[in-house]
Computed example of a mutant assay.
Amino acid sequence: MAAERARRVHLVVAAVAWFAVLFQLLLVLTGEAILVEEDPPGLATRIYRFFAYFTIQSNLLVAVTSTALARDPALDSRGWRVARLAGLVGISVTGVVHFFLLRPLLDLDGADLVADKLLHMAVPVLAVAAWAWVGPRPRVTTRDAAYALVWPVLWTAWTLVMGQVDGWVPYPFLNAAEQGWGAVGVACAGITLLFVALFALFGWLDRRLRPAPEAR
């Protein structure tokens, strides 16, 4: 019964995450101007920028890992542990950073607003709540957390380098041309500390909460 309940919970998270990502992709493909005031760029550039957002990557990680868990709620392997932990922490950072740094800058309505709330609020809340309720746990080790941290570090490095190449960054607090490198450095340091704190928190909770799903 516990495994079946876990399967249903993960299926709901996967369905919402996939819908949110695909819905936002549809809006991008049809030329909606997301987080920009000017007309949207060409199709190839729009697609690249869509996948360049940390928000999209974290939602995709949640969608993929939740889909796998919907098939096998007790799934376990080193690579999967890293992907799952990266997804949980990444989607948590997505929610926190959006709420405190990006939400005040946005003026969205209609379909754009729906997609924004799904990606930045619904999926983060559902993903963390599902983990807290049905696991799987225990799964987190210090080594897994170290591997999972590689993704956001590489994403940040790539984003800053590409920002110097073509002048575009997905988030305004990473725009060195407008904010200055000092402000960007402070933002990166603060978000890095948030990542480390969340990895530590998930690891601590992983050891303290009851194992899940319960044995069949």
Rank of each mutant, 00 (worst) to 15 (best):
V184D: 00
M1G: 13
F19G: 03
L29W: 02
A189C: 04
L160Q: 00
R81Q: 05
F202G: 00
F100C: 04
A130P: 15
L105S: 14
L22A: 03
V28Y: 05
G90V: 12
D109M: 12
A148K: 00
N175L: 07
E32W: 09
M121N: 14
V114D: 12
G185R: 02
A63T: 01
W18H: 03
V161L: 08
A146C: 11
A197D: 08
H120S: 13
W168D: 06
A63P: 02
Q179M: 12
L85N: 05
G90S: 11
A200P: 03
A127N: 06
V150Y: 07
M121L: 15
E178P: 07
L60F: 12
A44D: 02
V184N: 02
M162F: 07
W131I: 08
R210P: 06
L113Y: 14
M1F: 08
L26E: 04
D116S: 10
T67R: 10
A189K: 14
D107E: 14
W151A: 15
A20V: 00
T192L: 06
A14F: 06
F195W: 14
A20E: 00
F99A: 15
V134M: 05
A145L: 03
G163I: 15
T156V: 14
V165M: 11
T55F: 08
V184I: 01
V93L: 15
T159Q: 03
H120R: 10
E4P: 01
N175M: 10
L209S: 04
G95K: 10
L118N: 07
L149W: 14
V186W: 12
Q164L: 09
V125Y: 10
G182M: 06
A189E: 05
L11C: 13
F195V: 02
F50Q: 02
G163H: 14
R139Q: 11
C188D: 06
V89T: 06
V82E: 03
L61P: 00
G167D: 00
L119V: 15
A83C: 12
Q179V: 08
V169S: 05
E38P: 02
L118D: 07
L209R: 06
V169A: 06
M1E: 06
M1N: 11
P152W: 04
P124E: 10
T65C: 15
L35M: 09
F195M: 07
R139D: 06
V28R: 05
G180Y: 02
V16M: 00
P124N: 10
L26W: 11
F51D: 00
W155C: 05
E32M: 07
A200C: 02
R5I: 12
A132L: 15
F50G: 01
V140E: 07
N59T: 06
F199R: 00
R8S: 06
T94I: 11
L105H: 13
G95P: 11
P136V: 03
L101G: 09
Q164R: 09
D39T: 05
P124R: 08
T45Y: 04
V128A: 09
R71W: 15
L194T: 04
